[in-house]
Nucleic acid binder design. Sequence first.
DNA 1: TTATCGCGTCCAGTTACTTGACGCGATCAG
DNA 2: CTGATCGCGTCAAGTAACTGGACGCGATAA
Lengths: 304, 304
Amino acid sequence: MEDGSERLRWGVRRRLEFIDFRLFWDGRFNRSDLATTFGISAQQASADIGHYEKIAAANLRYDRAEKAYIRTDDFAPAFIGETIERYLLQLVAIENRWMRPGDTWFDAIPPIEVLTLGRRPTDPAVLLRVLDAIRKHQEIDIDYASLTGSVQPSRTIAPHALAHSAGRWYVRSWSRDHNDFRDYNLNRIAKVIDHRPASVDVSLDYEWAQKINLVIRPNPGLPPERQAAVASEHAMTDGKLIRPCRLSLSFYLMSEYNLDVEPGVLKPEKQQIVLHNRDEVTQARASSRQMSIEALARASTGGE
Amino acid sequence: MEDGSERLRWGVRRRLEFIDFRLFWDGRFNRSDLATTFGISAQQASADIGHYEKIAAANLRYDRAEKAYIRTDDFAPAFIGETIERYLLQLVAIENRWMRPGDTWFDAIPPIEVLTLGRRPTDPAVLLRVLDAIRKHQEIDIDYASLTGSVQPSRTIAPHALAHSAGRWYVRSWSRDHNDFRDYNLNRIAKVIDHRPASVDVSLDYEWAQKINLVIRPNPGLPPERQAAVASEHAMTDGKLIRPCRLSLSFYLMSEYNLDVEPGVLKPEKQQIVLHNRDEVTQARASSRQMSIEALARASTGGE
DNA sequence: TTATCGCGTCCAGTTACTTGACGCGATCAG
DNA sequence: CTGATCGCGTCAAGTAACTGGACGCGATAA
């Protein structure tokens, strides 16, 4: 099957992709679908359909009774290729109200249910300032929603990276108040007040820079056939999964999968995978954190 | 600030959105950025920039030294609006290799780290057949990767919905072998072999159709200020969160947040929220499941 | 039957976009 | 300082995309 590699103008290509998309997800589409979603005339839509037929004639046929173009059995995507995950993500985003259906190409949203506890949306203004600070190596003064909920004096941080885990966004930053590196929850930053050039050397954040291999295995407490299934699901080789991971982030992954719980506390079904080198990880993390703090202390006494 | 509500052709509008996007995320863009991502000439790109300036002149200025258009301090998005979550999702998707950077408008990917254990990608052919079966009320014969990994005879299911939780996709289906409704892991369906009209009445899936309110509270074992923080993070009112949820899916949400663990087993930090009406939920789930099974049994003895 | 609707197509006119050419200001190597 | 380079802006002329209007065709519904 061709991949639609002809030289097409960007807009035309997108419309042919749309045809591909609708055939895949709905099995059908209309000329008017094409015309309304792109705001083009019916004539132009006809021309586009003709264009698509030239490229992938076997993919569709017009059904007069249905008044629609119908996907054939030998349909093979000519444009959208292997980008299925992308559209699945869009479905999740729609259900979570992160996206409006109109932002996507879905017509009938498939009957899906998305289950999360949700979280507060990200403030664009905050994200913009944080990204700027990362890019331009600035330190920023922020209003941070403290644990107690009480009003706190503003804090000064020098962010240098974003991290995402288990649905949360973290801002990896140097903290002026503590003179060490920490994670700040992006959604808890209420406001970015001011900014100035940062003085800290972010390469001293060893806990971020250094990686370690998490060695993950199926929980040996599970019946052997369940262990095999778990191994298969996580695409393990030789019954184990090696996952490289920044030291500072290892905590979140361990937390998400209950890897930080002592063996035997939870039923094996609640802890399908276990971390084989847990002690090594916690120890490496603690020591790199200590090294980082000492290096920062030396730098500040020496430099200022 | 205007929202770019002029009547613009679809392609032009997308390009102005692109300008908005790059200004937001990178703080800058080039004429050639515009020209190359959309495959248009430099002249046309100039025209588009002029067009954008007419709509949101205060958003950008040209810096001759930088050879780029730079975001001003009073920048306010004129096109991309509040669709920030969408682009954050794209960043996650890129890091997970679900999307290629070229599928997005990002130039320099911000320094982000995405932490998951990953999973096998979804097979487009399988998804397509499953969606068809849902839409057309068909039953399908599938090759299902069993827990033991051994080859199993094919199973016959009649799917009627998709569900997403904790990174997994489930296919809610009637099972011919068991004459009840179950969840099938989408990634475990290796192949869809055949299909025919389904005979089962999906409205008998009470465990799916019926919803219950999960009453979620901060773990009382946490210090009060931590409880307040948890309540705030989950946007609780009066210290509790009411989350309506299909009975069949309640299990996954409980599993994801360790709500299904007896109080006292885990440290409170590992179980920041607790389910106040756990007994009610498990009981409702069991009874609706039983009702469903009985209804199906009556239908099959009476009907066939 | 008649009315309606969606598709396909021929037509002429408009807009978007192209290639080609030239000038301007900033940066850089010699 | 000078000439080369690069990215931007613009004028001009031609092409491709797209629009409006009009007409016929087949299927469906009143």
